[in-house]
Structures are given as structure tokens and as C-alpha cells.
Nucleic acid binder design. Sequence first.
DNA 1: CAAATTAGTTGCAAAAGTCAACTAATCTGA
DNA 2: TCAGATTAGTTGACTTTTGCAACTAATTTG
Lengths: 149, 149
Amino acid sequence: MNTRKPLLYLMGQTMHLSKLRLLATFKENDIELSMEQFILLHFINAKEDLTQQDIANHFYRDKSLIMRQTNILIDLRYVVRMQDREDKRKKNLILTKKGFEVFEHAKKISDQVSQELLHGVTEEELIHFENVIQKIQQNTGFSDLAENC
Amino acid sequence: MNTRKPLLYLMGQTMHLSKLRLLATFKENDIELSMEQFILLHFINAKEDLTQQDIANHFYRDKSLIMRQTNILIDLRYVVRMQDREDKRKKNLILTKKGFEVFEHAKKISDQVSQELLHGVTEEELIHFENVIQKIQQNTGFSDLAENC
DNA sequence: CAAATTAGTTGCAAAAGTCAACTAATCTGA
DNA sequence: TCAGATTAGTTGACTTTTGCAACTAATTTG
């Protein structure tokens, strides 16, 4: 009998506990962001002329979910929606100064947490690890191969 | 500026896409289990004299959530609750024959999916990968070091 | 230009998760 | 020993997260 834990069991548990750690550290530092909000800010910050549909495609989520998550960030004045100049159906999401500051702070904490989580992992192991993660992601058949974020 | 993706961003996305792949494959094979239900079955199958509180502790979830997830498995006749002989507060969760059969089927599919996801990953890389995952899990400070499942 | 497609939006509902209160059983220490 | 603390399970009420379907307005395409 194969007693090795299923891959997704292992990854899921690690992900869950890591998320708890991140959120606890956010709270300690008075950052009131969910992990999803943080990731959304990260993505909006990294991309120019980003639309909600782009986000939905990238994360394989329903666009209505992205709509609502974005609304929260807008209510917080972290993000604004601006009509695209060329295509009036589209709206570009743009970080505000306030949003950028909050994001930068959260990013610093997040990097710190990552470092802690990777304590005892060598640079070489990390490279291999990220390499395997990438392969897994590609093997899902979902992930956009051309993607750079 | 550090352009590397945050660790949890990468892991989260990989986890999400992998979950989509697993659920799609479950559906193709007429398995009507959520990933959480599958993992719960896995855990109940692996452990003797398991209580809901044990599960809640292990997965760092509220016991009321475990209660409700277990109720679903009981409604499906996959699991039964049996009063512990020694401690009448406790109830042990036990797989039924039906539950075991469904689990075994799902496990087979899950192993298959894992294999597909690990396509192109060498045995050595996998060992390193699981090693890093374990370290991360331990570094969260949550994970029970004595645990074997 | 009519028909199909696309981006955003909204309503509805289901699923997932949290928190507090409660019961019954067990444990603990003065 | 037995009163008070603790533990496991349960329930209710609530919030958050998520997905689906329908709709509008703008754009693309044959």
C-alpha cells in the first residue's frame, strides 16, 4: 500500500498553514488585507492597463468574483477604475498612492514571512523547488505558458 | 526591485490550478467529492479512533466546520460516528465499506492526477520538493512535529 | 449593418468558514 | 469527594467566498 501523502494533500496543508502565518503576521503589523486582496494588489501593481477580465483569466476565477474583490479595494481607496481610452467596454485598474503604500508595506511583511518560511532551505533547494512548482503549474494544463507574472 | 513572485502567490496559484485539475478529473470519473471531502476521507481512513476534535486540530480548522463536513459524509453513508468506549464525550469516525470503496476509487484517480502533475519531474527532484514543503510547513510554527499523516 | 462576442455588472444561491453559546462527560485539586 | 475547570460535540447565527446565469453596453466580424 502506498502510504505517501497525496501531493495535493501535502501542498494544500502547507498552503493553509502558510496562509495562517501570513495573515497572523499581517495582523501583528496592522495590515488589514486578506491574502487574496494582497495578491490582487500585487497583480494590479505589476501590470499596466489591467482589466478585470485579465485578472479573471489569469487566476481562473469568475469575473464576478474579481468584480467584487476589486470593489472592496476601491471602497478602501486603494484602487481606481478608469475607462480604457481605446475600448469603452474595458476599465483599467490603477493603484492609488494610498494603495501603493499599503501594498509596499504588505509586500515587505510578505517577503519577511517568506524568508521565515524558507528558513533552513538553501538557495539551490529554493531554485529547484520553484522549478518543480512551475512544472506542476504547467502540467495542470491551465496555466498560460506565455505568462510572466 | 525584487521581481520574484511572493512564495505564497506562487504556491497559491499552483494549488488552485491543481485543485481545478483534480476536481475536473474527479468529475470525468463520476466522483462527486470536493477536495476537502476527499482529504477528510483520506484522514479518516488512515487513522484509528479518530475524533472530530483530532481532525480540527490537525487541519487547524474550527471544529464546527469539521462537524458539518463530517455530517455530509455521514449523510452519504461514507462514514459513521461511534461513541468511544472509554470516553463518552468522544465519537470515533469510521469509514463504511461504501466509503472505503469511494475513497479507494478517488485515491486511484488522485494518484493518477499527481503523476500527471509531476510529469517531467525526476524522482530526485520530487524528494527535494517534498523535503522543502515539509520544511516550510514546519516553519509556519503550526504544524505538529510529531505528526505522521 | 446584423449577429456574435466581449467586459463589466447584478441577483441569486450554494459552499466555506467563524464565533459564541450550550450540553454532557471527564478531569483536577483543595 | 465534589465543585470548578476542561473537553468533545453540537447548534445557531452570521460573514465571506465563490460560481452561475442573465443582463447592458461596446466592439468586432462576416
